[in-house]
Design a binder for these strands. Structure first.
Lengths: 133, 133
DNA sequence: TATAATACCTACAAAATAAGTAGGAAATAG
DNA sequence: CTATTTCCTACTTATTTTGTAGGTATTATA
């Protein structure tokens, strides 16, 4: 599977933020988007580190989207939130490990598949995931 | 990840069979292709059931490919050997479970991604995975 | 017909990954 | 000062994938 629960939660949280104009508390956002609060915290942290969202601490704090929703591709969001977006371990986490790599006739196919998926996911933005349009 | 160890083993086993002209014992094939023997047994069974390979029992028995290698697409082999070839659970194993499905704005994207991957994997055959060509 | 080699089958075990939780520390508006 | 909020570390649980054990059924051939 390419896109797991975690990545889909991330996308939901970001489109959720896009729906609100300004700052939203995670408590509220997680509730709205039906993402387990504590899991949402972990995901939010990643999104902040990636520079996708900004946070304000303390009372009346919360998160907000940095860019307009059409300026985030699914590819870039998922690259940060998924463990790996590669089609196989051969081109992902275990790329370095495989002793067959040098001569493997299948490896170029996986690379091309990765490229195909990446192009696909780069053609969609958060705006495409917003309801009512 | 789309293609796991299991699916890759299956492809290796089939190209291995294609390399030999006739019947090969699993012991030999598994050794050549560096697939754990007992795991190879399980995979072979699936390939037989799918009609991709044929078996002969008893002494001097073994497996052989039914069609010429160019007549198997990666898509059809992987559909039988991978748990799911879908991009997400939303379009795979848990498709029926999701209460959001009817209105989910993201679902069409996952369906289109599945289609893209399927088309890609349908453009390659076992012949493309054979060494020395 | 006995034997050795082989495919076939069921059930289990181990390893890896993904999903989710607990419990607090640090910051900030009011 | 207090309530609310983000931030952080560590842990637990669930699920999936990978692999193994131990045998039964079949068949060529000596």
């Amino acid at each position: 599977m390419i896109v797991s629960t975690r990545g889909r939660y991330a996308l939901r949280m970001m489109t959720g933020l896009a729906g609100h104009g300004g700052s939203v508390s995670l408590r509220e956002l997680a509730e709205e988007e039906e993402v387990p609060f504590k899991y949402a915290e972990a995901i939010a942290r990643v999104l902040v580190k990636a520079g996708f969202i900004e946070s304000a601490r303390g009372k009346n704090g919360g998160y907000r989207l940095v860019r307009p929703p059409e300026a985030y591709t699914l590819a870039e969001v998922l690259r940060e939130t998924e463990t790996s977006l590669s089609a196989t371990d051969c081109t992902g986490r275990k790329e370095a490990e495989c002793p067959r790599a040098a001569t493997c006739p299948t490896l170029p196919v996986w690379r091309a598949l990765d490229e195909t998926v990446n192009e696909f996911l780069s053609r969609y933005t958060l705006l495409d995931l917003m309801p009512n349009r």
